[in-house]
Amino acid sequence: MSSVNPVLEKQAVQKQVKVYLIVFGALAVLTLVTVLASYLDVTIGPAIAIALAIASVKGSLVALVFMHLSHEQKAIYWLLLLTAIFFLVLMILPSGTVANGTAIG
């Protein structure tokens, strides 16, 4: 059974509810910012950087607040670290292929 005081836990959840609503507002605003930023007259490099930066902020908010990663057990963090390493390898792999000039035309 949980060793957390149920009264304290309820108070903590009530505080969290306010945070959830603030994060919802932030995500909605950032979605509009993403769309507006896509109309900026910039080359593809900065456009990708801007779009992915905003998406990363949005993704972090979802993961940290909605998925409770801001206060999770160590086992989850280790699991996600391993996942992130393999994910990065997946993302870097095609760059190497392109550098060798063997990409699909």
């Binding site: 699991l79 994910f87 997946l90 993302m91 095609p94």
Partner: peptide, 30 residues
């Protein structure tokens, strides 16, 4: 909870493979 996180880790790799394909297709296209 641990089980769903393991599943989600495998899902990251599934979608990651597709994002990787997108990069490959896009950077390689004329």
């Amino acid at each position: 909870k641990f089980g769903i996180w393991l599943f989600l880790a495998s899902e990251v790799m599934l979608f990651g493979a597709l994002f990787s394909s997108l990069i490959l297709l896009r950077t390689g296209a004329e």
